[in-house]
Structure formats: C-alpha cells, structure tokens
C-alpha cells in the first residue's frame, strides 16, 4: 500500500522525534518566543502549560511549518523544518497530526466527507470500500459512529473535537500536536477528551505535545510537563514534581 511507504520510520529509535533549540519568533515589534529549548521523545505525552498569549500555539505552528522561525533550530525526525522543500514539508506533515482549538472541521462538508478528505487527497485512496472501512473504524475509535452523515454545525463542541481528532488520526500520524484540546468544554467532556488523548497514545503509539492551561487535562495526559511564560520555558518536570514546586507561577496553575 502507498501509505505504508510514507509512514515508514526513518528516524533512529532512540533519539527525540522533535528537537527544538534556541527558537525565537516575533511578529513585528511583538516578541512572542525568546528562547525555547525542548525535546519530544517517542511515545511520550508532553504537556506545555502556560497562560494565554505566551506563545504556546506559535511554538507548535513553527513545528509544522505554518510559521517560520526567526532564530533557532526545529528538527523533526532529524530534519530541519525551515529548510524543507514544499514537497518534503508535505511529506512531513502527513506524519504529524495537528488538532486545532476549534476542531477546524470543514463546515461545508458532512462528517464523512471531512474524514474522506485527507484519505482521498493526502493518501490518494480511490477504493470506495477501503475508504468507508477506514472512516467507520476511526469513528468507532473516537466513539461517534452515529455522527457520520451529520454536518459540523449539528455537532456539539465536544463532538467537533472528537471528529477533528478522528480526521487527524485517520492518517495514522506518528506525532500529534494538540492545541488547547479542552478549551471551551465542560469538565465532563474535558475529561472524556483527555482520556481519548491518552488512549490515542496507547492504541496508536503516537508521541504528543499537548498545549493547555487546563490542569485536569494535564493530570490525565502528561508524562512530562513544561511550563511556559513570556516566550521561555520556566519549569520542567512530571506532574507530581511540579505540583509541589515552590515557584509562584508554576504553583498558580495547580490551585
């Protein structure tokens, strides 16, 4: 199959899948990122905690090449993102899944068409029964098999996130980037989504970066936590370590 060759592992098994060194980014006069250094290891859930507007989203957008960095290195699978050609970048993006804050469902299409979109256009699948099988399988995976013929406008916020996740996961990425997955959801739905993120790791063996300011989500999902403030990383550690941190800012998240 075509997609088998595309999702083949090309990295060394031991090294980090994402490695960021000295990342800086500013928009006009507004410096968002000053000096970011971090690594994402294989099959790890890395949570980045931070207030709104501290540049968390900018960091992960730099990773997928949606934004170009001003300074520093971003290596994904040992390849520098900013030097990739358009086609190479496309190849890379297939291996990275990105879940947007709003779910970013294509609202002119039904759920089925949303899920078929990457299959037809990215994996270039043509076989109808194969596509149907994959769509049903992934909807089963996110627990929404009944939503298949609904329009995005008919779905609740939590359902949209699930379908958004399904659309990203249908390409079987090796890395998942979650941009505020629980924002705007009630605590129960938040918990469900967080558990879903956790199950993605166990079921599909993905490495994830989860951006959030929701400590409940971090508690369920995090293997390791980074705390970000004004463009730099101020603390790093496991959930338990940071919970008992003496740092004022870090402490404020856990209250």
């Amino acid at each position: 199959m075509k997609e088998e060759t595309k999702t083949e592992h090309t990295t060394a098994d031991n090294g980090p899948v994402i490695s960021i060194k000295g990342l800086a980014k500013s928009f006009g006069s507004n410096t968002v990122l000053q000096d970011i250094n971090m690594d994402l290891h294989k099959e790890e859930n890395l949570v980045i905690l931070g207030k709104s507007g501290t540049g968390k989203s900018v960091t992960i957008k730099c990773i997928v090449g949606l934004l170009a960095q001003d300074k520093g290195q971003i290596k994904v699978f040992n390849e520098e993102v900013s030097t990739l050609s358009e086609d190479q970048l496309k190849e890379l993006r297939i291996r990275i899944g990105f879940l947007f804050q709003s779910g970013a469902l294509y609202d002119s299409m039904t759920v089925r068409e949303n899920l078929e979109f990457p299959l037809r256009r990215v994996l270039k699948l043509r076989d109808k029964s194969d596509i149907d099988k994959r769509v049903e399988e992934i909807l089963e995976g996110v627990g929404l098999p009944d939503a298949i013929d609904k329009m995005p406008s008919e779905l609740s916020g939590g359902m949209r996130k699930r379908i958004g996740l399904a659309r990203t996961m249908i390409l079987k990425p090796e890395i998942m980037l979650y941009d505020e997955p629980t924002t705007g959801l009630d605590p129960i739905t938040s918990k469900e989504i967080s558990e879903l993120i956790q199950s993605m790791k166990t079921n599909y063996h993905v490495s994830s970066i989860i951006i959030t300011h929701d400590i409940a989500c971090a508690k369920i999902t995090a293997d390791r936590i980074l705390v970000m403030d004004s463009g730099t990383i101020v603390a790093e550690g496991s959930f338990d370590e940071l919970e008992h941190s003496k740092d004022k800012l870090v402490n404020s998240f856990f209250k």
């Binding site: 949606l66 970013a104 990457p118």
Partner: peptide, 10 residues
C-alpha cells in the same frame, strides 16, 4: 483554522 487544518494535513 480550516485552511490551516487543510494545510497541515498535507
């Protein structure tokens, strides 16, 4: 973010 979603999906 639908345009960006399309872009990052490849």
């Amino acid at each position: 973010e639908q345009v960006e979603a399309m872009e990052v999906s490849g």
